[in-house]
């Protein structure tokens, strides 16, 4: 716990690279892109120059269905970054997609008390006002 200034600090912008920019462009259109290996069919998130299962460089983008389950989560009371203080309490979760890969995300439009490990979720992207960038958040499938 650190004594940082409590002034409203803007959220930092996403730091995409030449390889990952397509991921964030698709995100702005509401699509979650994964990589599929042309050699062994392994699906992975995030983008790399090769498949982590077989090291084939033959990887290509493929849209995910945008469905999965909550692998684990936490309700954040005291965030690690001061820019998220006004958002507390918020739900941070790792979602396991039906295609297999997992990713860090937020569960939005929910009451934190309603969240549990194993619940089904669907992609519900959020446009962050601070950055004017779209992040790939999820919502409980039961709320759809």
């Amino acid at each position: 716990m650190t004594a940082e200034t409590t002034a409203t600090m803007p959220k930092p912008r996403i730091t995409s690279t030449e390889r990952t920019s397509a991921f964030w462009e698709a995100a702005s259109q509401g699509t979650l892109l994964l990589q599929r290996c042309g050699q062994c069919n392994h699906m992975q998130h995030y983008a790399r120059p090769m498949c982590v299962a077989c090291w084939s460089p033959n990887v290509s983008w493929e849209a995910a269905a945008g469905t999965g389950v909550i692998w684990t989560f936490t309700v954040v009371g005291m965030p690690g970054h001061p820019a998220w203080r006004p958002d507390t309490p918020y739900v941070l979760a790792i979602v396991e997609l039906d295609e297999g890969p997992r990713l860090m995300t937020n569960i939005v439009d929910c009451r934190p008390d309603d969240i549990a490990v194993g619940q089904r979720v669907v992609l519900r992207p959020t446009l962050q006002p601070d950055t004017n960038q779209t992040i790939l958040t999820f919502a409980l499938a039961s709320n759809e």
Partner: peptide, 23 residues
């Protein structure tokens, strides 16, 4: 981590250990 975790408010170590405990 900076690209795929931080944009969701997942900074520092507390959140990760909390998620292990939750699991």
């Amino acid at each position: 981590i900076r690209e795929f975790d931080v944009p969701y408010g997942a900074s520092g170590a507390n959140q990760a250990y909390a998620m292990v405990a939750q699991a």
